[in-house]
Simulated scan of single mutants.
Amino acid sequence: MNIVITGSLGNIGKPLTQLLVANGHQVTVISSKPERIEAIRQAGAIPAIGSIQDADFLAQTFTGADAVYLMEAWEGIGSIYDQAIDFLAEFKKIAHHYVQAVLQAGVSRLVHLSSVGAHSEQGTGSLLVHHTVENILRTLPENVAIKFMRPVGFFSNIYRWLPMIQAKGAIIQSYGGDQKEPWVSPYDIAATIAQEMEKPFNGRTVQYLASDEVSPNEIARTLGKSIGNPELRWEVIPPDTLLNQMLSAGINEWIANGLVAMQQAQQNGSLYHDFYLNKPTLGKVKLADFADEFAAVYKNL
């Protein structure tokens, strides 16, 4: 098949591209960075340099594709420290550009990377953007089949806590404890999407993605052991305290409020209500596997 990938060679895009190329597909990878051209070619794919904010560029790149993988990256919109960015509005723009490009190119099969929490427009904090984007994509004609993939929290996002772990010897959030929650590895996401690309596309489907179920305290213990710091703990602070810390650090107000709201949904379990009604088979990568990877990164800092 001729498959177009948005999201460049990121945590999901790189292994997804490698899997699809290995399976014999022609893969075009969209990136906004010309410096990625050589890496894309080395992965066996065709580079397409341009912006997902450019509907005409997208339409041209999508033309002739048998299937397209769509995603929206927070980093591609701008810095979370930029107070002027309306992130929800920017996600809407990207979704509308996708719709325009799909219609113009005549694409009939889409795989969209959404998120846990996309099932609801309330109580999910900043994950509201994914609910919004899904609904915009659902305005496409019924002959456009869409597979909405909803991963849970990424293990790889834990790397954002490295400075905190180094400076404080703790993971500090506004939720925690021994209640298990699902996590996912980008490698399992890529493997599942590669498989779904080769299966029939019918209507609109939703599939959740997860690799393991572990509690915050388990994460702290496992990561602490892996880096030689058995005293590493997961510390819970009041939501208002976390919010004030983020605002004082200059984080966009909407992002800060959204993160706190999302963590409260994690704590009370409401974020995972639809996930557990439609629980998937867990992937191969477990917390222990990620801990080995994390330890290697930590020890090379």
Rank of each mutant, 00 (worst) to 15 (best):
residue 18 Q to F: 12
residue 12 I to V: 14
residue 9 L to M: 07
residue 35 E to A: 14
residue 44 G to A: 08
residue 13 G to S: 04
residue 18 Q to A: 14
residue 14 K to T: 11
residue 19 L to T: 10
residue 14 K to Y: 11
residue 16 L to S: 03
residue 40 I to Y: 00
residue 24 G to F: 08
residue 45 A to W: 05
residue 32 S to L: 11
residue 17 T to C: 10
residue 40 I to D: 00
residue 12 I to D: 00
residue 42 Q to A: 15
residue 33 K to F: 10
residue 20 L to K: 03
residue 24 G to S: 08
residue 36 R to Q: 15
residue 32 S to H: 14
residue 23 N to T: 10
residue 21 V to I: 09
residue 32 S to M: 13
residue 40 I to Q: 01
residue 23 N to P: 10
residue 12 I to N: 00
residue 25 H to L: 07
residue 12 I to P: 01
residue 8 S to I: 03
residue 11 N to R: 15
residue 37 I to E: 07
residue 22 A to L: 09
residue 38 E to D: 15
residue 18 Q to P: 08
residue 19 L to H: 05
residue 32 S to Q: 13
residue 26 Q to K: 13
residue 38 E to R: 14
residue 25 H to E: 02
residue 42 Q to M: 14
residue 21 V to P: 03
residue 8 S to G: 09
residue 45 A to F: 04
residue 39 A to F: 01
residue 33 K to W: 08
residue 8 S to Q: 02
residue 29 V to N: 00
residue 22 A to I: 13
residue 19 L to G: 07
residue 12 I to T: 05
residue 42 Q to N: 15
residue 15 P to Q: 07
residue 26 Q to F: 15
residue 45 A to R: 01
residue 40 I to F: 02
residue 37 I to P: 03
residue 32 S to Y: 11
residue 14 K to G: 08
residue 14 K to L: 14
residue 33 K to Y: 11
residue 39 A to D: 02
residue 42 Q to K: 15
residue 45 A to C: 06
residue 30 I to K: 05
residue 15 P to V: 04
residue 10 G to L: 05
residue 19 L to E: 07
residue 31 S to P: 06
residue 15 P to D: 01
residue 37 I to A: 05
residue 40 I to N: 00
residue 12 I to Y: 00
residue 10 G to V: 02
residue 12 I to M: 06
residue 39 A to C: 04
residue 20 L to Y: 04
residue 37 I to D: 05
